[in-house]
Design a protein around this nucleic acid. Structure first.
Lengths: 203, 203
DNA sequence: TGACAACATGAGTGGAGACTCATATTTTGC
DNA sequence: GCAAAATATGAGTCTCCACTCATGTTGTCA
């Protein structure tokens, strides 16, 4: 269902053949394990799934966090591509909502998506690596706003916030498909132009 | 800022004076520690904060989970009261939105609120103890719907889902106050009657 | 006030998981 | 084929944490 992870040579000279092969095995295993059990899954489990000794995992990724980061990078690229593909054709608002829905759907099946988005909020350093996703989302949003379907005052930041929130929620709450639809519908309604313009309490 | 936790005699006969005092100390400490560091904080830290030996904590709460549960119970009651108080006066829609906002605000400062809501989604056993909060929220919602301010097809479940999501999001993303307002505004807009009635993609 | 039950203490146990390192194996350039 | 370098192995270390228990202390009630 997902393409094999990039074998991404690290800094220095080219990897030995077996090393390159193991690196891919480890990334693939980690992707599966973390998607299933979340970032608290043990490195040992990843090693077992990859058919590799624990030491090998730590040779390729000196820290568990490095391993997590590598996976996030792949995921981020995949999602950004997905967004760009959607923004190329079809109704702009539909494209945005479809992407949004798709992400939440993936989050329901895959913890990694949630963890990625959770990190997105924190790593707002300019030029940070997460920007690709943000920019792809931005293109979707702006196109929908130019088409007059989405309220113009909404910024990418809010969309990301809502996306993060929805994905987190879908994870922690074990939402049914019906609940997911109804909840997203409310959020989408809040983004459409023909919504009210009332103010929040005490504003 | 928060009232002392209920001293809640456990099952059997009345507690000895020192035991009753320690129980309260432990609950107070646990409330502070878990609010600050989340449910992963160590029991040892709670004991230290309470000025009590680790064994004493485990005498009162045989399991770390029992301690967590006791705190959640207090929190739940406090929040439900807060909701009921709001539902007694003022504009119905404003009351709902104020409660919503207040919860998110508290979540930004206190991890326990998030953890409580996360549990709310899962413990849907009928007659479960979390129902108090759900019912209080329900009263707020229905009143606002009867006033014609909130779309009638929205159910409590969706509101809880949105609430959970927003609180989770505010925790994981470190949202600024501005972002919090703008994001909640979108959600509230989606709940108001004069919103669009479009459908989600592929519906 | 004494005696006993209730309670407090905190060093200790067991388990889990991140990370290391001495040793064995494999790849590669010659 | 053959070193030498790169890599793989996995038992072992270290740290953290939930939970226990033998021993000491305190409240209560007659």
């Amino acid at each position: 269902m997902t393409p094999p992870p990039s074998s991404d040579a690290p800094g220095g000279r080219p990897l030995r053949a077996d090393a390159r092969r193991n690196r891919i095995r480890i990334l693939t295993a980690a992707e599966a394990v973390f998607a299933e059990k979340g970032p608290d899954a043990s490195t040992e489990e990843v090693a077992a799934r990859a058919g590799v000794a624990i030491g090998t995992v730590f040779r390729h990724f000196p820290t568990k966090d490095d391993l997590l980061a590598a996976i996030m990078k792949d995921l981020r690229q995949r999602l950004a591509e997905q967004a760009d593909q959607l923004s190329e054709n079809g109704d702009p608002a539909t494209a945005l909502f479809t992407f949004f829905t798709s992400l939440v759907e993936q989050a329901a099946a895959t913890r990694t998506v949630v963890d990625l988005l959770a990190r997105t909020g924190n790593e707002i350093e300019p030029g940070g690596p997460i920007r690709e996703l943000e920019q792809a989302l931005s293109r979707l949003l702006i196109r929908a706003q130019q088409a007059g379907a989405i309220r113009p005052q909404i910024r990418v930041t809010e969309v990301i916030a809502l996306l993060t929130a929805a994905c987190q929620g879908v994870l922690s709450g074990a939402w049914s498909e019906d609940l997911r639809h109804r909840t997203l519908e409310i959020i989408f309604n809040g983004m459409r132009v023909n919504s009210a313009t009332h103010n929040t309490p005490q504003d």
